[in-house]
């Protein structure tokens, strides 16, 4: 009587969460080469920043660096943090866009894992972050950056930076699911990244800032992470007490914002 003869039974459980999350990750990744503006932003922006800062500011800022450290050595880990932090914005935009276009409704009306849309978005965005990080290192090599402490520490730097981007994606997911459309998500996910990344040690040593700003800059997670990454690539060994704060930030962001994002997703 009904046409439901071939309907697959509803699947539940963690197996389907991984499976469904993977299908939606695939969905986001195949879009990447079809979205020239995103690719361009992803690849051109870091290249431009590296070249601009190295050749425009490198001369003067290089003076205030400790002897023996070139500006490229100083800059690349910082630029990597800055670029990855900015790149997480696409998590907010992507989710807001899916919401606005009714795709989230479509997925929620299917018998799939509830978390699959979030998992798919964050996984594919993390893959993209890794691509950005690799491009950055390649451009870095052109302007004189080297993994002084060896490839192992270099890879650890990339993994750590991408992991930080992953934890920031949960803030972006919360923003993307809290606003009305993709444009708002883009703005809301963007503006606060400027003070976050500029009041930090990304481009200049913190000591070159006025005293009151140094207090903010020193405790900025972006500074903590940039310094840690510099230790990875330059010395090959983190200084005492620099790993834990960064780790705490990463875990803290996920612990606070993942449940927030999930609860926003339930209510949309």
């Amino acid at each position: 009587m009904t046409a439901a003869t071939g309907a697959p039974a509803a699947r539940r459980g963690p197996g389907s969460m991984l499976h469904d999350g993977w299908i939606l990750t695939w969905r986001n990744l195949v879009q990447l080469p079809r979205t020239p503006e995103l690719l361009l932003f992803t690849l051109i922006q870091p290249i431009m920043f590296v070249l601009l800062f190295t050749y425009v500011f490198g001369g003067s800022i290089g003076q205030s660096l400790p002897p023996g450290i070139s500006y490229a050595q100083f800059l690349i880990p910082g630029i990597m943090v800055q670029t990855l932090v900015f790149s997480t914005n696409s998590t907010a935009v992507g989710l807001a866009d899916d919401l606005q276009k009714g795709l989230v409704d479509r997925f929620r009306s299917l018998p799939i894992a509830r978390s699959a849309v979030l998992v798919g978005r964050i996984c594919s965005d993390t893959v993209r972050l890794a691509m950005v990080a690799v491009v950055l290192v390649l451009v870095g090599y052109v302007v004189g950056f080297r993994f002084e402490a060896g490839l192992g520490w270099g890879l650890l730097m990339i993994v750590t930076a991408v992991a930080f981007g992953f934890s920031m994606s949960w803030i972006m997911a919360t923003i993307g699911l809290s606003v009305r459309d993709a444009e708002t998500a883009s703005t809301a996910g963007f503006v606060w990244l400027f003070p976050l990344t500029f009041v930090s040690s990304v481009f200049v040593p913190v000591t070159s800032m006025p005293g009151w700003l140094q207090v903010v800059a020193r405790n900025n997670p972006v500074t903590l992470l940039s310094n840690l990454l510099r230790e990875f690539t330059l010395i090959g060994r983190p200084a005492a007490g620099t790993v834990l704060p960064v780790l705490a930030w990463m875990v803290g962001l996920v612990v606070v914002f993942a449940p927030l994002a999930v609860s926003r997703y339930r209510k949309v």
């Binding site: 309907a7 039974a9 276009k101 009714g102 409704d105 009306s109 018998p111 799939i112």
Partner: peptide, 21 residues
């Protein structure tokens, strides 16, 4: 809800398909 979703299909007021796919 999950079992209901296995029974239903929904076509909303606006086409909800992925434009990039």
């Amino acid at each position: 809800a999950t079992r209901v979703r296995a029974v239903i299909g929904l076509t909303g007021q606006y086409a909800a398909v992925d434009e990039k796919l």
